[in-house]
Design a protein around this nucleic acid. Structure first.
Lengths: 109, 109
DNA sequence: ACCAGTACCTAGCAAAACTGAGTAAAAGGC
DNA sequence: GCCTTTTACTCAGTTTTGCTAGGTACTGGT
């Protein structure tokens, strides 16, 4: 992904992380690694941690500290009811966007 | 669209406007009206004009001043070669994002 | 003792969109 | 002639979000 992706990620990355958490609880380091495997090569660690702090403060996730076999304890996040509502709203907006963009793309090249 | 869309638009809105311009030249007021018809209800006028200034400064569009039948002269923008390249790159990044998101969405709800 | 891998956090910056104004020009009604 | 509406563009200041570029801390292998 190029630098263009940086700006396109804004607002979308939060939805991505919430979607990940809706599948199963996860911790920051794990999420960052997973994103990088998926091709989001230049996602900065700090970006994910900051995002997790934000969604926690907005009450979209629950947190639990879990000791790790290697390294410091993990902060495991899981999506709560409010987070699930927010995710639903995200998918709605995302669908709207993809529909409009698909139309535009067909319209020409 | 809710407030959530505001942040999701970042980076995407530029692609949308370039896509519009790739179909035919257009001026700011026209683009804003069209976007609102398409359901982008809360796009601020200032946002579109600022975006057009940016893409002009980056040399992605050509500008021509055209007198209007009613009101002040229009600044008509058209996509140039560099803009077309940029748009191609935008579609590539957009495809990447939609693929990843579609996968995530299938993965669960 | 040292280093690599794991795991998290922070301060300061940049980009992009919004708010909420203001400026201007022409058309049409009175 | 004046006023309102519509068209059309501009600008300063704020917020949100991601990036940069560090730092802290714990474990296991050499």
């Amino acid at each position: 992904m190029g630098k263009q992706a940086t700006e396109m990620l804004k607002g979308v990355l939060e939805g991505i992380v919430l979607a990940i958490l809706s599948a199963r609880p996860a911790y920051g380091y794990e999420i960052t690694s997973w994103l990088r495997e998926q091709g989001f090569a230049d996602i900065a660690e700090g970006t994910v941690y900051a995002l997790l702090v934000r969604v926690e403060q907005r009450g979209l996730v629950d947190v639990e500290k879990v000791p790790s076999e290697k390294g410091p304890p993990r902060k495991v996040y899981s999506l709560n009811a409010q987070g699930r509502d927010h995710l639903t709203e995200f998918w709605r907006t995302w669908s709207f966007l993809t529909d409009r963009l698909a139309q535009l793309r067909e319209g020409q090249g």
